[in-house]
Design a binder for these strands. Sequence first.
DNA 1: TTTGGCACTCCTGGCTACGGAGTGCTAATA
DNA 2: TATTAGCACTCCGTAGCCAGGAGTGCCAAA
Lengths: 344, 344
Amino acid sequence: MKQPRLDERKAYILATVVYEYVATAEPVASQTLTQKYNLGVSSATVRNEMAELEAAGYLVQPHTSAGRVPSDAGYRTYVDDLMQPEALTTADRRRIRDDFKDASQELDEQTTRLLGKLSKSLAFVTKPKSEAQLFKHVQLISIAPRTGVAVVVTSFGVSAQSLFELNSDVSAEDLTRLSSALNARCANRALRDIGDAEVAGVVAELGLGDDVRGALTTALQSARASEVPEIAAAGAQNLLDQPEFADVRKLRSILRIVEEQRTLYDIVADAIVSDNPSVKIGHELGNEELADLSVVTVPYRFGPKAIGMLSILGPRRMPYARLLALASGTAESLSRRLADAEIR
Amino acid sequence: MKQPRLDERKAYILATVVYEYVATAEPVASQTLTQKYNLGVSSATVRNEMAELEAAGYLVQPHTSAGRVPSDAGYRTYVDDLMQPEALTTADRRRIRDDFKDASQELDEQTTRLLGKLSKSLAFVTKPKSEAQLFKHVQLISIAPRTGVAVVVTSFGVSAQSLFELNSDVSAEDLTRLSSALNARCANRALRDIGDAEVAGVVAELGLGDDVRGALTTALQSARASEVPEIAAAGAQNLLDQPEFADVRKLRSILRIVEEQRTLYDIVADAIVSDNPSVKIGHELGNEELADLSVVTVPYRFGPKAIGMLSILGPRRMPYARLLALASGTAESLSRRLADAEIR
DNA sequence: TTTGGCACTCCTGGCTACGGAGTGCTAATA
DNA sequence: TATTAGCACTCCGTAGCCAGGAGTGCCAAA
């Protein structure tokens, strides 16, 4: 902190500059402030104040004879100290409710699309972390001689299925007995805790072959999601409406990063640990290519535990309060929905 | 056809203009042609020929003192009559083979990403049409009292699973008997032919309740894909490298259309019917917003039947022969892969 | 039918001029 | 000491202009 605290007028001016710049995308002039917001002082006074805010690092001037624009630090204090939290509009609330009403297999993707539309920005959602899943049931289904399908059910629902082929004939009854034995032993344990040892034990107990064990192991492995969860994204075209993307090159780096996923995950990773809404502004994203963007991230839960994130990526000049409200509201609905659908 | 047939020299000039323009993105001048390709005539002669080609509708001039650019008709005759079919490069061939080596649940999405990368354009792939799927197996799995999961297996593999809850207790044995009965009656029939009547018959036979019937019906319904198959897309950011997208607005309409899916499907719909590779150029796409784009589409098969499409969308100025080779090669690998994975 | 030559058109980039927007500073004022 | 009116100054954006260049169309000759 360069300055322990902003006096009230400076704080108001900073907040107003952010507000106005978010609305217009034009550098904010001292006169604009005195005209549109009743400061009770002249534009000259505002100019002095703005010069001090710039010296303190909260504002920057694109060029000598231009108005002021918030810096990363300016946005940061706006978000932390100055802005009024917003509530969801009733229209948005209804929109979210309606969207969650019609169920779907791919809840995460549907949520991403919804958030993209509501925010008019690029939305992305991490799929549920596997650690939170409880193993519920496995079923080996014989489809044809020496061919079968393994289905794994977790507390989130069916989380994996895989085809397998065997080198020897195994009766449908044996497959059923194997399923039952594993279910009896492992039901309701954390999915991540069920390793090859459990499988091997059960298979050996029933005197079945290695190929059966392999099939089962593969099925459980694909049920445990990869360490970097998949990320669904939607709404990239919304960014094109923003003047900051008049230059195509900006967009290219973003699309590349979205396709890569890894960088996106790094951005939200610490928010999922802290289990709190997070706002990252410009350089805070730790990536030069994303330096004039911001990301709002809100966790969603399964029971008490945060298991994934809803994020909105847009120009740094974004309506933070509104987007936080949107993401929070959507995350809440998603969490409730997951809880309702839980397999107990 | 304005002209029954182009004489050899005109054809060569047209082909060269297309080739050169695809390579450079600059209008092609008469002198460029005489210098880079040995026509054996002077630039003045070429100018005369080009003027005639323009009068016949094969070329257009962006402005008076500029070189020539192919028109839709120019590209069309190039694609139909003039261009040399290309074979896959060994590098591309290896790339495709390697990519199909490591299996994946979402074969269609992986294929889309591969094609996007190879073509450096936007690739999209329609998911397999449901009509071609044969019903193989259904399994009702009891997970908890009054709760279960229904899994439907078709010749493509597991194609749907759905959670169900019952109002009355039904024993696990009854669920198994029900599964077996339906399997016995319907195995290897076309999925689309298995309607509510079959389900109702089997349920009644075993004396089970309406809620069981409902669960089963729902599961089968979600196995039958919707009439407009889902379309996976990848590689939009590749388009940004093309000079025709220096203007951001172009890109916006494309991204919107990709998100909508419906328009994309209309574009490939007739190709899937004719079961042949198809090239649509500019206005042939039937959409003003796409007028300076082209789409190359190739069907992929399951057995003898075309069940879906691989498409590449890019600027009209695209390397048609190369993209056709890429799409065909990828489609072939995908078809082979589907055949190998078939459940018989 | 082909071709060299040449005038003509249009695009492009660089240069200058100019009006407008907004600031910083100074000096006067409360 | 804080505020403010006034004014000079800086920089941007746009328009206009000019020169250079690219490429054509056409004519007349081979």
